[in-house]
Nucleic acid binder design. Structure first.
Lengths: 215, 215
DNA sequence: CAGGACGATTTGTGATCACGATTTCCGCAT
DNA sequence: ATGCGGAAATCGTGATCACAAATCGTCCTG
């Protein structure tokens, strides 16, 4: 599977529920506005309402789910102004993370990024939207992990989470775009150690993809 | 009180608990490493474990509380490297928020910021640590609210939350520092509409205060 | 045919309880 | 004094239940 034994099997029920829901939301497997119920979640995961409630509460706190006035939960439907904001946050934090990762970007890491990037290309030709989102985020996360900045990484992941449900819509109108070049520019800048070029490439990769959502 | 009827009285119990705990943590009223128990919280607020658990779960998701391996909760004890990270996030996001607020920073807002700033000074002479933190954050929040960027503001507030328990320690060694000048520099830049000076003043205000925590 | 009212169902909230694991504390031996 | 072992108290987890509010469907009226 895509989740290689990341859950120790002995984890509490509420965390198993949280992890699965978070994974599905971040990768766009739930459309915006999708309604969820505590009893429904509990039934699906074979647990009672209690752990389902805690998982939902956590996801709401991270902005992955929205809470209506009556307490009902659903995936958020975000407007253009919020997309622009989240894109701006990405444009501010991700270049910084890339810049911090640069001094430790050894060839082994660059090779791994290259193979992940080819996996991204595969997802594009396979028309696998969720697979594309997953591979694309893995590319970024693999790079940023080298920055040794867990707080920043956690923060940017919550941004990805908030964009998750909307990401899938982005995918359809992203088909024939000169998007793939940015990852290659990132790899090139990593190889040459050019920090300015790296920061620029990351910022462009982040902003361009999200700019077309405002259309 | 410092919380002017922000809770509609009819709010669910778990949200009342959440709000009060969040307020106390963000303003440094709980020292780092402070242990909390669900039953204890429930007793204090006159509710059962269930709402206490949900409030705690939310705060953990925001980084305001940490969860030990056995599920026990306490306020985080953050190290220097994490402080540096959180300060870097502040240094990236807060100038952006200030910059976005600048076009809408009318004289009424600047006056209000000035009075809040004098309140900050009062807290310093009164040696009121928690009051100082509250007034200082109110200064920043009042300015950033004008940026009309709720997602960014929410994100920076979670950073403040994570720094909350450690903030109080910062206060003691901040006494005789040239710190008060930065707020005045912010106000001056707002009056003249000088974006570059504003960005610089905000960044210095944010980074200097947290840099002395690493000592 | 459209719109509103009413009843049945669904849903979130909060309390309570049992269970297993952890922590704490006291006493004993080194 | 110091370290160690075990019993007792404490704690988090998860299930179940009752209750009130909200939602949905249906039927009736205009």
């Amino acid at each position: 599977m895509t989740n290689p034994a990341k859950t120790p099997e002995t984890a509490p029920a509420h965390e198993r529920v949280y992890r699965v829901l978070r994974h599905r939301i971040m990768h766009g497997e739930l459309p915006p506005g999708n309604a969820l119920t505590l009893r429904g979640i509990g039934t699906v995961f074979g647990v009672s309402m209690t752990p389902a409630r805690e998982a939902v509460r956590r996801l709401v706190a991270e902005g992955a789910l929205t809470l209506s006035a009556s307490g009902r939960v659903s995936t958020p439907e975000i407007g253009n102004e919020r997309i622009e904001e989240l894109a701006a946050i990405r444009a501010l934090l991700e270049p910084e993370l890339a810049s911090r990762a640069l001094p430790r970007a050894y060839p082994a890491l660059i090779d791994r990024l290259g193979s992940i990037n080819s996996s991204v290309d595969q997802m594009v030709v396979k028309q696998d939207a969720s697979g594309y989102i997953r591979a694309n985020l893995e590319f970024h996360r693999t790079l940023y992990l080298r920055a040794q900045a867990p707080a920043m990484l956690a923060m940017i992941e919550t941004v990805w989470l908030q964009l998750g449900p909307t990401m899938r819509q982005l995918y359809s109108r992203m088909q024939n775009s000169g998007r793939l070049g940015h990852h290659r520019a990132i790899l090139a800048a990593l190889k040459t150690g050019d920090e300015a070029a790296l920061v620029l490439a990351v910022r462009q990769d982040v902003t361009q993809g999200l700019r077309m959502l405002a259309a």
